[in-house]
Amino acid sequence: MADTAATTELVITRVFDAPRELVYRAFTDPDQLAQWFGPVGFSVPRDTVDIDARVGGHQRFTMVSDHDPAMSSTVNATFTEVVENELLVGTETAEGVPGVAEGTVFSLRVEFHDEDGRTRLVLRQGPYTAEMEGMARAGWLSSFGKLDTLLAG
């Protein structure tokens, strides 16, 4: 029997070989976000990205399948807490997400910690069903591989 209760929080801790100011900027600068967000096989067209990184501000963009452009997912999140170079917290209401009830509210918390010139990022997102948590984890880890490449450039 499948777990249909959305009670699981996704938690990922990842160290990036870049100062936290650069990692934070990759999340808040539309040009950079368009270069790394989305798992391999998906891209974010720059003209879909709009970010206003302040309390009450927003993060909006569309992730599109490279193989089937008709397959896309829109993100429309609102920031509830913002501390420059340290913290981004927000909520997003699900719209058209396969396997997720319309109107489901997800939270996202991204912490940026300095680790001797590198950045320890702690990401929390949910609630998810166990199945959706696994898919979200895979998506973030694939995206973070693309972010590693961007930060190394």
Results as ranks from 00 to 15, higher is better:
Pro69His: 05
Val82Ser: 03
Val83Met: 07
Pro98Cys: 02
Glu84Met: 05
His67Ser: 14
Val75Gly: 11
Val97Met: 13
Glu86Phe: 05
Val110Ile: 14
Gly99Ala: 10
His113Asp: 09
Arg54Pro: 04
His67Leu: 14
Thr104Met: 07
Phe61His: 10
Arg54Gly: 13
Leu88Glu: 01
Glu111Met: 04
Thr104His: 15
Arg60Pro: 00
Arg60Ala: 01
Met63Pro: 01
Gly103Phe: 14
Thr74Glu: 15
Met71Tyr: 04
His58Cys: 11
Ser107His: 14
Met63Cys: 08
Val82Phe: 05
Glu84Cys: 10
Thr93Phe: 06
Arg109Asn: 05
Ala94Cys: 10
Ser73Pro: 00
Phe112Ser: 03
Gly90Ala: 12
Val105Trp: 00
Glu81Asp: 15
Ala101Cys: 04
Val89Glu: 09
His113Ile: 06
Ser107Leu: 08
Val97His: 11
Thr104Trp: 08
Pro69Met: 05
Glu111Phe: 02
Ala77Gln: 12
Thr93Tyr: 05
Pro98Ala: 03
Thr104Gln: 13
Ala77Val: 04
Arg109His: 03
Val55Glu: 15
Val89Met: 06
Glu102Asp: 15
Pro69Trp: 06
Gln59Glu: 07
Glu111Val: 12
Arg60Thr: 09
Val82Tyr: 07
Gly56Met: 10
His67Pro: 00
Val82Gly: 01
Ser107Tyr: 12
Leu87Val: 08
Thr62His: 03
Asn76Gly: 13
Val64Ile: 10
Val82Trp: 05
Phe79Trp: 05
Gly56Ile: 08
Glu95Ser: 15
Ala94His: 01
Val83Ala: 14
Thr91Gln: 11
Gly96Pro: 06
Phe79Gly: 02
Ala101Met: 07
Gln59Tyr: 03
Glu86Met: 04
Ala70Cys: 00
His58Phe: 15
Val100Trp: 04
Asp66Glu: 12
Ala77Met: 13
His58Asn: 12
Leu87Ser: 03
Gln59His: 05
Ala77Tyr: 04
Thr78Gly: 10
Ser107Asn: 09
Met71Ala: 15
Thr80Asp: 13
Arg60Leu: 02
Ser73Tyr: 13
Val55Ser: 09
Thr93Ile: 14
Pro98Lys: 00
Thr74Ser: 15
Gly90Val: 07
Glu86Thr: 08
Val75Lys: 00
Thr91Lys: 11
Arg109Val: 14
Val83Asp: 12
Ser72Met: 12
Asp66Val: 06
Asp66Cys: 02
